[in-house]
Design a protein around this nucleic acid. Sequence first.
DNA 1: CTGAAAGCGCTAACAC
DNA 2: GTGTTAGCGCTTTCAG
Lengths: 351, 351
Amino acid sequence: MKPTDRPVTSRDVAKAAGVSQATVSAVLNGYSGNIRVSAATRERVLQVAQALGYAPNLAAQALRSEHTHLLALVVRAVQSHPYDQPIPYRLNEAASRAAYRSGYLLLAYHVEVYSSESPAKLVRHLRRQRVDGVLLDAPDCPELVQEVIAAGLRCVQLLRPQPAEGVPVVVVDPQPGIAAAIHHLVTLGHRHIGFVGLESDHPVDRARQRAFFSAMRTEGLEVDQKAIQLVPSYALESGYFAMQRLLDLRAPVTALLASADALTLGILRLLYERGIRVPQQISIVSYDDAFVAHLYPPISAIAQPYEAIAERAVSLLIPVQGENREAFASARVVLPSAFKPRASTAPPIGR
Amino acid sequence: MKPTDRPVTSRDVAKAAGVSQATVSAVLNGYSGNIRVSAATRERVLQVAQALGYAPNLAAQALRSEHTHLLALVVRAVQSHPYDQPIPYRLNEAASRAAYRSGYLLLAYHVEVYSSESPAKLVRHLRRQRVDGVLLDAPDCPELVQEVIAAGLRCVQLLRPQPAEGVPVVVVDPQPGIAAAIHHLVTLGHRHIGFVGLESDHPVDRARQRAFFSAMRTEGLEVDQKAIQLVPSYALESGYFAMQRLLDLRAPVTALLASADALTLGILRLLYERGIRVPQQISIVSYDDAFVAHLYPPISAIAQPYEAIAERAVSLLIPVQGENREAFASARVVLPSAFKPRASTAPPIGR
DNA sequence: CTGAAAGCGCTAACAC
DNA sequence: GTGTTAGCGCTTTCAG
């Protein structure tokens, strides 16, 4: 099997099969160019390669062919407990599989923080590695994107893009999910529905808010301004305090839409502490659906299609025959959200 | 900055700095061998490299130096919902960071299933990629480990090792955590404590069971055999049915130790459905602590030190100067578990 | 249909 | 101190 410790090379295969090394290469790569190999030779080469346990050296291939079959996933800073940020995990897994299926491999960069120094360092890494493409997961910092572009790296932004020319984007439209969620609540009998969102100018956050307002309008409901809580971050604490304010203000909501799973966690914690039961006393819907399906009660949520996001991003990055540069640069994939009713929503009290 | 589209090479740097290409290499690698570079030249080279935005081609380096600075994390099959398997995520992140800190990069292989065909294919990938080391996360299938070893890959097994010669191992000792958990329950007043474990011969599962029995003995408590539920898998469903049996058997436990987070999820689901409250009517402790801290109520749990596991594994894999092959092969790192009391444990009813 | 040869960017031994 | 040189394993023309 393995005659020596040194990995077997294509030359070894050639020698053993009694052909030239170039022929081996041709056979293994589906002989491009004007090279033609007889079926018999082909068979023999394949067999010998198999027998010798030949594995082409990707470093050499990369050196020669200028592409590494490596994709990088750059994951935004994970602040506190890792499990506060499960989205990158879903993305990572899905992207990793999608890449693998296409003969690519995924390098995961869990960048500590996007400090001022860090983006440059990261980009240096990426360039040294000669990755063929970069998936930028919600790059909160504009410089990162700028650096990546400036380095001439082929990349795509996911979920929460920074404004940038020439970088395709894969995002989610919150509208269908939120509309369905509000409709579901209204059907259950809710009239006073609150919203906890991020205080932000980012189109992604604005879109969630807008979708909420427009859904309310569609259902013919008024929005109580006091029932709209804008928080400074998508974090457990923010949800916790938002819920506190909602309760202290006696904003009479019977149902609540939290615009991120992390917020839901905080909301649930406060409700738990105050002994307020879900869904008996208040209905909760979460946006993201990264993991709230596993809480008790399982939380009704608006799901983002993480697997699809990763897949689309990967296939954008993998160059196709005769690809149009313009088309790539301006690609903008918008995937729909979807509402998943579960056990955290029920008719309001007194019905 | 970037005069042309072609990445700048060390030769470009050499030309621009007016030195030979070898000198550039020497400077950038801390000039090994008998080569000496004057401080002035050194400075100049560094500056030119910086100015040109030079990034060494790792493929070329790898080709030459026979090591790629790439580590692979092979993650066991993820069956159902990704979030049922959060441990790989914790490991992945921690390993990725640890590797990055040491100048290595982590390739994540989320292998669909360890089917009969798959291990060979995976190993082929690993060999093509010429990874410097492989972290095997709980390789449930012995062939995988055998193949990896047979391929001459440097590897370490994590958490749930297969018996194999010459492969170091990083595992967790459940004893300290379980002892502390039982002691905690006893202190609260519990006498009837149940256990949901895996029906298995694997040392890791046996150790959890043994730790439970020995802790009970230490506390001077008898174990009710009916309160020991052995299930066929660490899965939500298994926990669900085990709890069902416990309830139907009227095994009068006031507290329960579930030997995996996944089981806890199932247990909680049944309790939720039956309207049995935690911790008022039953106390729950979970083993793993991969994510149950975020449930409501937050679950008291025996934590495995995932970050430490990944770090130790990575540093085992990274070869050190003058390393002892024997010592590497027989390394066996055992990390302690720790109990984290949270809100799912309380005095039993009637106290 | 197959072989010979050049060279990708880098490291390291050796010559000056 | 610094330059020259020989490959690492592969792809890809170009001759035969």
